[in-house]
């Protein structure tokens, strides 16, 4: 295994309408490690994953995956590259017209010509690894949120990808399924030597699995490092986020004019006393 980074993001600019989302983002994501990208809500973390997956095209800058520029690939080459990636969506995004078994079998059926018995074995193996072999006949509508995400995880690793992108894997989970997911991500990464990118704002869980962290805010990387170095980072923006302080450089208030003016309007000041 080489030491070259798996993903390199260079000077990435992206905006939606008039709203600038990324203003010169640089990142290198090492091979075989769990890298977390964190930041307050609305900083475009999901957008970043879509850019990596080639679903969105940046205004300038480039993203290299294993040396290939994602946005310069032909449609066919992009689809080939995507076979080497798995993505876990916030909602799980299971296909509602297929049952659990067929959902996990889907990537195998479309990308391989394996005989049915082999597909069956592989699917059961993947379902076993997320602990849901018994749920294979259920439809996605019958699953709880956490179970749906585990099935989606089994589907994401069905083709044994080299890279998995996790989009907010912990959002809206009860503590037990959160623990299960943390365990699973860690185990999968170690067992399969995957490169994982986790996008999240759940600090505790993310810190416990990440090897390396990027913190983005205002369209730029404000800090990066191992969990230990970030924990002791002096930057107020970093410490506010890591320690979850309600007010700080990221203000509690949405920008507004001064409070007393808003309340009293333009009425002349009342002289007191």
């Amino acid at each position: 295994m080489t030491d070259a980074p798996f993903i390199e993001i260079e000077e990435l600019y992206f905006s939606r309408g008039d709203h600038e989302i990324f203003r010169g983002v640089n990142m290198t994501i090492p091979r075989g490690k769990v890298t977390a990208i964190m930041g307050p809500s609305g900083t475009g973390k999901t957008t970043l994953l879509k850019l990596i997956g080639g679903q969105l095209t940046p205004e300038s800058g480039r993203i290299l995956i294993d040396g290939q520029d994602v946005h310069k690939l032909s449609r066919k080459a992009l689809f080939t590259l995507r076979k080497r990636m798995g993505m876990l969506f916030q909602s799980g995004a299971l296909f509602s017209d297929l049952d659990v078994f067929e959902n996990v079998a889907f990537p195998l059926r479309v990308h391989t010509d394996l005989p049915n018995t082999m597909v069956r074995d592989l699917v059961l193996l993947k379902l076993q690894s997320v602990g849901l072999r018994g749920a294979r006949h259920l439809t996605p509508a019958e699953l709880s949120g956490g179970m749906a995400r585990r099935v989606a995880l089994a589907r994401a690793v069905a083709l044994d990808p080299e890279l998995i992108l996790y989009d907010e894997p912990f959002v809206g989970q009860d503590p037990i399924s959160m623990g299960v997911l943390v365990q699973l991500i860690k185990r999968l990464n170690q067992a399969l030597q995957l490169t994982s990118v986790v996008v999240s704002h759940d600090i505790k869980e993310t810190l416990s699995i990440a090897d390396y962290l990027y913190l983005i805010a205002d369209g730029q990387v404000v800090a990066h490092g191992t969990p230990q170095t970030l924990d002791t980072n002096e930057d107020p923006r970093v410490s506010q986020f890591i320690h979850g302080e309600p007010d700080g450089p990221v203000p509690f208030h949405y920008p507004a004019e001064a409070f007393y003016r808003d309340i009293l309007g333009d009425a002349p000041m009342i002289q007191i006393g």
Partner: peptide, 15 residues
């Protein structure tokens, strides 16, 4: 509904 639940996107990501 498939679009809203990201099924179309995830299909694209599966290739």
């Amino acid at each position: 509904l498939m679009k809203a639940t990201e099924q179309l996107t995830s299909m694209e990501m599966i290739g």
